[in-house]
């Protein structure tokens, strides 16, 4: 009788531990830390934009969902909202104005980003989420 109680106790503890693991490490696992993530690819910002212009499907397969380290000459900084700062690189004038690469910065890089001026050579790391028809989008961006 005592042995059965011990077995049941062990099973109960194992079940609780399994539920804990599933909830915290699978169901509620945190988003990837893109600031600390190692880049999957390094590419010039202009080459990235040209890749999407020349063959969007192939570029999407190559770059979407990847952490990219890009470099290029900054065209400007835009404070879109209180919680959203975008660095952008323009490589062409299209139907909707300047087209290129837009990098949405992580909040803790806003201050540094807002101090930057057009013409600076910069390196930015971020997650490539796709192409809007005018711009390649990088999000969760940081200065390495």
């Amino acid at each position: 009788m005592k042995i059965w109680k011990i077995i049941l106790l062990i099973i109960a503890i194992a079940a609780i531990a399994a539920a804990f693991v599933v909830y915290f490490f699978i169901y509620s696992k945190p988003h990837r830390d893109y600031e600390r993530a190692k880049p999957d690819l390094e590419i010039a910002a202009e080459d990235l934009y040209r890749a999407f212009i020349e063959d969007e499907q192939m570029a999407a397969e190559t770059f979407n969902g990847k952490v990219l380290l890009i470099d290029g000459t900054l065209s400007g900084v835009e404070q879109v909202a209180d919680d959203m700062v975008v660095l952008y690189f323009v490589f062409e004038e299209g139907m909707f104005g300047g087209e290129g690469v837009r990098c949405t910065m992580l909040v803790n890089h806003h201050e540094q980003a807002l101090q930057m001026e057009a013409g600076l050579e910069i390196v930015v790391k971020g997650l490539c989420t796709g192409f809007t028809g005018t711009d390649v989008i990088l999000e969760h961006c940081s200065f390495p």
Partner: peptide, 10 residues
């Protein structure tokens, strides 16, 4: 871009 949808849970 569909990948730009941000969810609370990863």
């Amino acid at each position: 871009p569909m990948r730009s949808f941000a969810f609370d849970k990863a």
